[in-house]
Nucleic acid binder design. Structure first.
Lengths: 109, 109
DNA sequence: ATAGAAGTTTCTAAATTTGGAAACTTTTGA
DNA sequence: TCAAAAGTTTCCAAATTTAGAAACTTCTAT
């Protein structure tokens, strides 16, 4: 898709800034928060597929029925860290957490 | 601390391989699992300190009593993803998750 | 088109987390 | 040294997650 003069590639951050709002705005915060909420569900599913496993097979590896895998893949935000780690362990996948401290003043009171 | 001839710097992975065991060994797996279990607790505390907050102040930001913050900082593995995200949001910190798929065959049956 | 595989939803009970409140312990700074 | 601040632990109840089982829906390959 050609446009006139404007570069066609943006980094993900730049796109977020432009279309969603700069880091710190309410809209961006909400977006990032929702993104984080569902990213783990997506990851579990993605890795399972990468491993060519059905939910039932993964369930066996974890030691639960397929229904629990399905629920996790649809919404992991209410799952405990321990549960998530158990699943990734069964998938032979290493998960790591990275924290970035934003340069904004905290408000409270 | 000087030694003869041997380089003094290792990457974290190399050190893990040498002192704990290669990825895939039971010992390494156990280590990684335990590490993941507690890293979030550590991160919450670290970021809070980085922000120069007491547990009570962070509690106010999150909307809970300081006791809950203390419990989270001592053991986050049983907390839900949602709870963890709520705390990091209050700390104005972005958390991201990274998954690395290990190249090992899965066994099940 | 269709049957079976794969995935989703619902109901239920047990297990566990969340959070308050208060007592307790440790740390800190004067 | 000591009092106050900061952090931890315990008890309890409400809220929520976990998991099984089964019914239901969607997907897939023939």
């Amino acid at each position: 898709m050609a446009t006139k003069g404007k570069p066609m590639t943006y980094s993900l951050s730049e796109m977020k800034d432009e279309f969603i709002g700069k880091t710190g705005t309410k809209k961006r915060d909400a977006y990032e928060h929702e993104l984080s909420m569902e990213v783990l569900s997506y990851m579990i599913k993605k890795v399972r597929q990468e491993r060519n496993l059905t939910q039932e097979q993964l369930g066996q590896l974890v030691g639960v029925q397929k229904a629990q895998i399905s629920k996790l893949e649809s919404s992991a935000n209410s799952a405990t860290i321990g549960t998530i780690l158990k699943v990734f362990k069964a998938l032979k996948a290493e998960i790591s957490f990275h924290v970035k401290i934003e340069n904004r003043k905290l408000q409270f009171g």
